[in-house]
Computed example of a mutant assay.
Amino acid sequence: MNQSKQRFFIALVPPPEIQQQITEIKQYFAEHYNSRSALKSPPHITLQPPFEWPAAEVPKLEESLKKFSAHRLSIPVSLCGFAAFAPRVIYVDVVKSPELLEIQTDLISYIEANLGIVPPVNQNRPFVPHMTVGFRDLTKENFQAAWLEFSGCQLHFEFTAAALTLLQHDSSRWNISKQFPLNIEPPTNLTQS
């Protein structure tokens, strides 16, 4: 029996108009700073880092994510300016809201308990929500030049993350595999008259 594995990660993906603008920034990094790796995935905020999963069990993974998402509210997300993991990564900064921190913590616990997916060795790193625009292929010189240009740049977007997104690697890039809608509003027993 073939037990081939596929690579996935779980993220929040912004709406198309914000994706387009962030992708244009990534394109700028590719053209001006020779950093193309960030273009290998749609703009996203990683909640669960890449993991391997048996190809034959993808329906189980999807069903589990569907169950998790069904009991979650959509999340307000604010993108504000730029920040960096020096000396190689520049990203659009994501405001660490309580809702964002909560869904990330709960998701990690849920998939570990229900699917046995354990975070990699670096699991002790704190969650820093971000949207990468210049990736590890930035040279130190290009990082310094790009950081000089972008560190003071103003950027502000707000959106509501209405779904968890499962991304799958196809051996050259990450693609959206499936989205799992979050509830738009909390269930309520109050009726408006």
Rank of each mutant, 00 (worst) to 15 (best):
68 F>H: 05
5 K>A: 14
62 E>V: 00
164 L>D: 03
111 I>M: 02
86 A>L: 06
14 P>K: 01
185 E>S: 13
159 F>E: 04
146 A>K: 05
112 E>N: 10
121 V>T: 12
74 S>D: 01
4 S>A: 14
42 P>M: 06
31 E>L: 14
164 L>C: 00
131 M>Q: 12
177 S>T: 00
55 A>P: 04
99 E>P: 14
10 I>V: 11
16 P>R: 00
2 N>R: 14
160 T>E: 08
48 Q>K: 13
16 P>G: 09
38 A>E: 07
106 D>A: 15
174 W>H: 04
117 I>S: 08
27 Q>Y: 11
53 W>F: 10
112 E>S: 11
62 E>N: 05
65 L>M: 03
12 L>H: 04
105 T>W: 13
88 R>F: 08
20 Q>T: 14
27 Q>R: 13
184 I>A: 15
193 S>I: 12
46 T>V: 08
1 M>F: 05
87 P>Q: 15
47 L>S: 01
59 P>V: 14
113 A>I: 09
184 I>K: 15
153 C>V: 12
115 L>N: 05
24 E>F: 02
134 G>W: 03
4 S>H: 14
102 E>C: 12
99 E>V: 01
175 N>E: 10
141 E>C: 05
14 P>N: 06
5 K>V: 15
126 P>L: 02
95 V>E: 11
165 T>G: 02
95 V>D: 02
24 E>Y: 00
189 N>Y: 15
52 E>K: 07
93 D>Y: 10
26 K>Q: 10
172 S>L: 04
101 L>S: 08
107 L>T: 02
90 I>V: 08
152 G>E: 11
82 F>V: 08
97 S>A: 10
28 Y>W: 14
73 L>P: 00
178 K>P: 01
76 P>R: 10
105 T>H: 14
64 S>M: 07
98 P>W: 09
184 I>F: 06
119 P>L: 15
102 E>L: 11
142 N>C: 09
135 F>D: 07
75 I>E: 00
24 E>A: 05
149 E>D: 15
146 A>D: 00
14 P>G: 02
7 R>C: 06
30 A>S: 09
91 Y>C: 09
183 N>W: 13
85 F>G: 08
60 K>R: 13
158 E>N: 11
139 T>F: 10
108 I>W: 06
107 L>Y: 00
76 P>Q: 03
90 I>Y: 03
184 I>M: 12
172 S>K: 04
106 D>Y: 08
175 N>Y: 00
120 P>D: 12
83 A>G: 15
176 I>D: 01
105 T>A: 15
166 L>A: 07
97 S>P: 08
38 A>Q: 06
78 S>M: 05
169 H>T: 04
68 F>C: 06
55 A>V: 14
172 S>E: 07
118 V>I: 14
84 A>D: 05
137 D>E: 08
36 R>I: 15
57 E>K: 09
128 V>R: 12
188 T>C: 12
98 P>N: 09
98 P>L: 11
92 V>D: 01
44 H>A: 04
